[in-house]
């Protein structure tokens, strides 16, 4: 306390931007308390994975080697005797989330780039005709048993007739903002709203329980996030650079690859991380669209509940640990980009 400035007291700060002692104590208590609340469940998860039936059931033991003797029993069970199921689900999860993330980030950032650079003015009337006729064609095929060739031909003919005729006369133009809003607003759809038709679609093309089904679904579900974050990010890249590249003879794709993508590394990394986490953790779609062959980690872990002996907490803990490990590793690798990429875009939006 000797170092305190004469004028400063317990509740009085001594310089601009610096806090009084009392508020600092409160602050650190709060922060440390919250850290404990965050970390303790994870600590418990880790020590539980080194317990066995006895050390779990006899009541809480907190400190390995002091309270109880850690055992590799659960790890052994999952990695050696039971490894087939785990490995398959693990590989499924990796394939699905990596592919879905890559696809989603690629397609989404292309769309975001186009939206931030090209001016669109689609005619709303034409779009409405299109949607209406697609719905009409589909209903007439599925509900009224019209031959699909006839329905399709009539639909296409009607579309061109209406679009060329009426659509030319009445024009309500949409703008980039509308398209962007439309894409982002897809995120509001709860998976449960769309999953039943998606289930039926994949069933009819016999893609249920395949990687493809989950990859495509995850890709679309996460696309709004990619478009939203990357749109903001692309807007921060000066246009001069691309125009200059264009004059220097680069194609638009060349510009995208040579100039835009290298400059948006931070945004891409953050977006990738986020989409990766979301795909890796996804539960409901996987529950509907996969059974055994394409089963992902969350489904496998959730199903471990169903044993006859109740939940085997020690095995469960191991499964959860290996399930969250890749995401944590990825986050550590991409950590330096998170604050740069994700936040810049998000906070601006």
């Amino acid at each position: 306390m000797k170092t305190l400035h004469p004028k400063s007291g317990l509740f009085e700060s001594r310089a601009i931007g610096e806090m009084a002692l009392a508020s600092r104590i409160i602050l650190y208590t709060l922060l440390l308390g919250w850290s404990a609340f965050v970390l303790f469940p994870i600590y418990w998860l880790i020590i539980t994975s080194f317990k066995n039936a006895a050390t779990v059931n006899q009541g809480p033991y907190f400190l390995p080697w002091i309270d109880f003797q850690p055992s590799m029993h659960a790890w052994y069970e999952l990695f050696v005797s039971d490894y087939e199921d785990t490995l398959r689900a693990y590989i499924n999860s990796i394939i699905i989330s990596l592919s879905a993330t890559a696809l989603s980030v690629l397609i989404g950032s292309m769309a975001a780039y186009a939206l931030s650079r090209v001016h669109y003015a689609p005619n709303l009337i034409t779009i409405l005709f299109f949607v209406f006729l697609v719905a009409l064609t589909w209903v007439s095929i599925s509900a009224f048993d019209v031959d699909w060739r006839v329905a399709l031909a009539v639909g296409v003919a009607l579309f061109f007739f209406l679009a060329r005729g009426v659509g030319r006369l009445h024009q309500i133009h949409l703008h980039n903002g509308d398209i962007l809003f439309w894409i982002i607003s897809q995120r509001i759809l709860a998976p449960i709203v769309v999953v039943v038709p998606i289930y039926m679609m994949f069933q009819s093309v016999r893609l249920l329980d395949t990687h493809m089904a989950l990859i495509l679904t995850y890709c679309v579900v996460n696309m709004p996030i990619v478009v939203w974050l990357m749109f903001d990010f692309f807007n921060t890249i000066p246009r001069d650079l691309e125009e200059s590249a264009q004059l220097d003879g680069a194609t638009m794709f060349g510009t995208f690859r040579e100039i835009v993508l290298p400059l948006s590394r931070a945004g891409l990394a953050a977006t990738t991380l986020l989409v990766m986490i979301l795909s890796w953790n996804e539960y409901l779609f996987a529950l509907f669209l996969s059974t055994t062959k394409a089963q992902t980690m969350p489904i496998l872990v959730a199903a471990m509940n169903a044993g006859e002996r109740g939940i085997l907490w020690w095995t469960m803990s191991v499964a959860i640990i290996i399930m969250i490990l890749p995401v944590v590793l990825l986050a550590v690798i991409l950590q330096k980009y998170i604050s740069k990429g994700l936040l810049v875009g998000a906070v601006k939006g």
Binding site: V38, L39, I42, L45, I277, W280, N281, Y283, M297, P298, V301, A302, I320, M323, I324, V327, V328, A331
Partner: peptide, 9 residues
Amino acid sequence: VPMMITPIG
């Protein structure tokens, strides 16, 4: 940290 942990977990 908690944000990275699967909801199932």
